[in-house]
Simulated assay, not measured.
Amino acid sequence: MAGANWIFRTQANQQWRHDTIGVVHSWSIQEMHGIIDSDETPGGCWTLFHSVAVEGFPALREGQQVEFEWNALDNPMNGCNFATIRAWPKGSEPYVAPPSDSPFASHVWLTFPDGTARELTEADLPPAPPRIPADRTTGIVRTWSDEEGWGVVNSDTTPGRAWTHVSNVAGSGFRLLTPGHRVTFEPETMVGGTQDGHHFRALDVRKAE
């Protein structure tokens, strides 16, 4: 059965790195980690998926020859005294992801027992649930968490209160709501479930004049 893995690429630490050539001793496609053997890393070098510098799905194959950068660990990890910083197929150049406007980048992959994988796209995702439109209404901010960026709003048209997120608050910059303040918003009825127990969501929330 296929499984889903969230794949995150991060910039590796540049300190105390060593370069060498090795052979992939083992690799788990389900757990996305493995061990690289080399003369310079006796006992094996522990390797996680985010260290695999290839374009596309970051995985290695058992028996594959690789070039890799590594460092020694102060404390053993899964029986290894060494950890991989970056690894890539022997004879190629390590892949470097192009710069992004976002500080975060993520991918979702379907992995299969034969070691293959396929990246999920928007076409694979279920369609967004239908929205039940409603006229704008006025309410009072009941609660708001600055740390978590969400809260709830009371109004006559949303019995049980309406849940809202900072992304639904109109405006620019750091958008916050204050409990007790009057706001206007577009109520949306949740279809097929609730959000933190609420059957309504407040969209395009604006401070009332």
Rank of each mutant, 00 (worst) to 15 (best):
M1S: 15
G3W: 14
F8V: 07
T10E: 06
T10H: 02
T10D: 03
N13S: 11
N13W: 03
R17M: 08
V24W: 04
V24P: 05
H25A: 05
E31C: 00
E31H: 13
H33R: 12
I35V: 14
S38D: 09
S38I: 04
P42Q: 04
P42S: 07
G44R: 11
G44C: 02
S51Q: 05
V54T: 08
V54S: 10
P58G: 06
A59C: 13
R61E: 15
Q64C: 05
V66H: 05
W70L: 00
A72W: 05
A72E: 15
D74T: 14
P76D: 14
N78M: 13
G79Y: 06
G79I: 12
G79C: 06
N81I: 01
N81T: 02
A83S: 15
A83D: 03
I85N: 10
R86L: 13
A87N: 08
K90L: 12
S92P: 07
S92R: 11
P94K: 02
Y95R: 01
S100G: 11
S102W: 00
S102L: 11
S106M: 12
V108P: 00
L110A: 11
L110Q: 13
L110W: 13
F112W: 10
P113Y: 09
D114W: 05
G115W: 04
A117P: 10
R118G: 06
E119H: 08
L120C: 12
T121Q: 12
P126E: 08
P129E: 06
I132A: 12
P133K: 03
T137C: 08
G139F: 07
V141W: 01
W144F: 12
E148W: 07
G149S: 09
W150G: 02
W150N: 01
V153Q: 01
V153W: 01
V153N: 03
S155D: 10
T157W: 02
P159M: 10
P159T: 06
G160R: 09
G160E: 11
R161E: 15
A162G: 11
A162P: 10
T164K: 05
T164E: 10
V166H: 09
G173I: 01
L176E: 14
L177S: 06
T178C: 12
T178A: 14
P179K: 04
F185C: 03
F185N: 08
P187L: 11
M190S: 11
G192H: 09
G192N: 04
G193H: 07
H198S: 07
H199K: 13
F200I: 08
R201N: 13
R201V: 15
A202F: 07
L203Y: 03
D204T: 04
V205N: 04
